[in-house]
Amino acid sequence: MATEITRLHHVGHVVRDMPAALDLYRCLGFVTPAPGYPAMPPREGGAPEPFGAANTHADFPGDFLELATVVTADGRVPADAQLVPLQAPPDVLPALVERINATRANLAECLERFEGLHILMFSSSDIDATATRLTAAGAGHGGVNTVRRPAGGEVETVRYLEIDGARPGSAAEGRIGVVADLDPRIQATRLVDHPNGAIGLVDAVLCAADAELDAVQARYERYLGRAPRAQGAARIFDLDGATLTLVPASALAMLFPGEQAPALPALVSCTVAVRDLAAVEKLVRNNKVPLVRASSGDVFVPAAAALGTAIAFRQAEESAGQGAATTVR
């Protein structure tokens, strides 16, 4: 059954050391702009200093891959980091700081669990319809939020909701939610040619304990408004040009040889479509990053070499007009 959920909107890789993460992603052939760090003076009259949480994106036409970290007193800040001084009316500033600190606390809790993928956001063509459907299905959520942020001289409006599970704003496997489809006009201003030829997210893998797989599947049927198909031991939710794969812990190594989930349930992998898989293999190996061949024919960087998550690459063709991967060769 088709719903208003369209594709993967983004996945988020939560890391402890942003400079190390930037080095890794650039070795894998992604263009990752200088991360943004919110900043405030620690005292009146002082220079702004970074605090809270920082992030950057590897952007594609219809989705993106996020790198996020918490700011700590002894943590490394990239040399090219962009400090973003908070500017808001006095009556708004405390709420803004509180929201940033809440994000930081959420990410810190993720890192206590493990370093890796903790954010999974789906894209919706009608976010209000998504909220109504989730409520009717008994899936708790925090309602539709709206934020506005600068985007290349314009203001981008982002509308999203977070699904509540283990605690407000977070399911057992991390921060799960739905975001209104990206504005293609604004997203186009962020696009670059990645050296690895990446053109879009095509899969995310969620690993669950064998005994809990049916319950996790039922949750995601409510979230997505559709049923998965079976593929061996895995359950696959088909989206527009992408998939969400649920896999029992006992079968994870069949998909990704040598991989083990750091916790259960856990987001253990994301897959990016590329224009020329052979070229990616050459680029990554030349940069001294290990690659493993998956049973699907994809290649992936093991989690042990990729800051806690398997990062996979898949040969795909571009769809006309979208630039997103639709056909696997």
Results as ranks from 00 to 15, higher is better:
F60Y: 14
A53P: 03
G140V: 03
A47D: 12
P89E: 13
L120T: 03
N101C: 08
T56A: 15
G45F: 09
D128W: 04
S124N: 03
A34D: 14
A54I: 06
A68N: 01
A39E: 08
G116C: 05
T130C: 09
F114H: 03
D91H: 13
F64I: 06
M121V: 13
A68Y: 02
F51L: 08
H118L: 04
I127E: 02
H57S: 10
G46V: 01
E44P: 04
G52W: 03
S125G: 15
A131C: 08
L93K: 07
L120S: 10
Y37A: 08
L96G: 11
S124Y: 07
E112I: 06
R133L: 04
P89A: 08
G140P: 03
A79W: 06
D63W: 02
H57A: 10
A139V: 15
R43L: 07
A105K: 12
S125N: 06
A105W: 07
E49W: 04
P50H: 04
E66H: 04
P41G: 06
G75D: 04
A53V: 09
S123R: 06
T132Y: 04
Q87H: 13
A53H: 11
E109R: 14
D59G: 10
F122K: 11
P35N: 12
P50N: 02
V84S: 13
P33R: 14
A137N: 01
V70A: 14
A88P: 00
T72C: 06
R104Q: 15
R113V: 02
H57P: 04
A108E: 15
G62I: 01
L65D: 02
T56E: 01
P35H: 11
V97N: 02
V84C: 15
A136V: 01
P33C: 13
F60Q: 08
F114M: 00
E112Q: 11
Y37C: 09
R113K: 09
T72F: 05
R104C: 14
F30E: 00
A95M: 07
L83D: 14
P48G: 12
G36K: 12
P85S: 09
A68R: 00
P41T: 05
A108I: 03
V77I: 15
V92R: 14
R113F: 01
V92E: 14
A39P: 02
T103G: 12
F122N: 12
A95K: 10
F114S: 05
R43E: 03
D63I: 04
T32G: 02
E66F: 07
L67H: 08
T32A: 13
E49V: 00
P94R: 00
L111E: 01
P50T: 08
P90V: 01
P85G: 11
L120F: 07
A54M: 05
S123F: 02
A108R: 13
G46D: 14
A139Q: 15
P38L: 10
L65M: 11
P89R: 01
P42V: 03
P94K: 07
E112D: 12
D91N: 13
F60W: 05
H118T: 07
Y37H: 09
A58P: 04
D74E: 15
T69I: 03
P42E: 02
L83F: 09
A139Y: 01
D91R: 06
D59I: 13
H57L: 14
T135K: 09
A34S: 14
P33Y: 14
V92P: 03
D74F: 03
